[in-house]
Design a binder for these strands. Structure first.
Lengths: 230, 230
DNA sequence: GCGTTTGGCTTACAGTGTAAGCTTACACTG
DNA sequence: CAGTGTAAGCTTACACTGTAAGCCAAACGC
């Protein structure tokens, strides 16, 4: 009772903090997608007026940066004891999982360039793992880029391909994707193949494309291994 | 003078068409980035009022879809005679080049799920190339996914890493990225290595990361080759 | 000639981010 | 305890967004 700097005498609300702002923004974006997070919405979620947020965050971009950090914090860092190959694989799956849990994340991430502290830390660890196992700095560099690119791109594809293309809410386009066998025979064949695999190809549940993910991942990892100086 | 359906009697403006709308939208987004394209802006660029556009396009999403199509139309399709490996490589570079010419494109593409006609056509051709060279449908499927993911992800990384992190226009943050050698030694080492390579690491000109691009690409292509049934 | 269709305009509304300034309630000083 | 400084939150306001609804004149088919 003594210690609290500025005790909330009104006993009403807990004080507004960056943390609390980010949290409610996160929960807000979780249901309703990224464009449902506005200053006013976030404020309302905190029982507060929009402009009050600006006492704690610089602007909306700042808010978004915070969200990105929250995302990256959820990606688990592999232990260096695993060896580089297992470590990379573990990280790959963790990234994919987290990014899939937040479909809005990739769009968000790529729109803001800079690397926050969390991302820097992650990179630092990953490079360390590679270097420890004999990767030259150049090889580590190239490896990390190729590795990250693949995972990142894969998740985006995964979402872009297997998400219904924008329910226009007033008008549902009758066939989801009427791919003519004459116009696009190969695509048609492929769609059929894919349909045969899982239950429904167009709306597959989240943990769907694991084998597809593995394919590229393995090819890359083997490539890295072959590039190692012996 | 007879033939023109609805001759522009006022002799003033050429008629508004989807094409013309897309074109000016494209040129508008080229300078000023994606968020500088608003209905009113596009309209103004055409000497017209905002609401007039809605007689030709459904809504802003429709406009954006059109832009995406314009982008994909610029990607050159490799000739099937090259053989799959050369074809894939050619396509990889074309995609990268086009996507780099329009840094706003990836964000745009990934936000709208569905595949337009152009994209379908491209996929159709690419699958055809693979199949012709002995890829099973399953292998072609996996290959295409891995391949596309990598390229796509790479371009995004390329832009995210080597673009100044949002010039706040009023305030330039003094050091672009003060990476402490103690906190992130490995990242520091890597940055140093990268700086030694090109002239300036943080703002590299466009055709910068070719060798990095090649590294992952080669690894993937070799992996594909090894997966081929013989 | 006469409807009817069409392309573009006008007005209006709900929503956005945020600049500027005000009010209140606390912490601290004398 | 009175007085003051300060920080947190609120109020108002502005410029801007996408787009629904309706109007109006010019061009068409008959």
């Amino acid at each position: 009772m003594k210690k609290a700097t500025r005790s909330r005498t009104l006993a009403s609300r807990p004080p507004l903090t960056r943390e609390r702002i980010f949290d409610t923004a996160l929960s807000l974006v979780d249901k309703g997608g990224i464009e449902s997070v506005s200053m006013r919405q976030v404020a309302q979620g905190l029982g507060v007026e929009a402009m009050s947020l600006y006492k704690h965050i610089a602007n909306k971009d700042d808010l978004m940066d915070g969200l990105v950090e929250l995302i990256f914090a959820q990606i688990i860092l592999p232990s260096p004891d695993l060896g580089w190959k297992k470590a990379l694989r573990e990280r790959a799956y963790s990234v994919r999982q987290v990014l899939n849990r937040y479909p809005w994340a990739p769009t968000l991430i790529e729109t803001r360039g800079g690397l926050g502290p969390t991302r820097l830390h992650h990179h630092n660890i990953m490079i360390g793992i590679l270097r420890k196992d004999g990767f030259t700095i150049e090889l580590a560099y190239n490896t990390l880029i190729a590795f990250t690119s693949y995972i990142y791109g894969f998740v985006i594809m995964e979402q872009a391909w297997f998400t219904p293309p924008k329910e226009n809410k007033t008008d549902i386009k009758p066939p989801p994707n009427p791919i003519s066998p004459h116009e696009f025979p190969h695509v048609f064949e492929m769609i059929n193949f894919v349909s045969g695999k899982g239950s429904d190809a167009t709306i597959r549940p989240q943990p769907g494309l694991v084998t597809e993910f593995e394919f590229g991942l393995n090819n890359l990892l083997e490539g890295f291994a072959r590039s190692l100086p012996k």
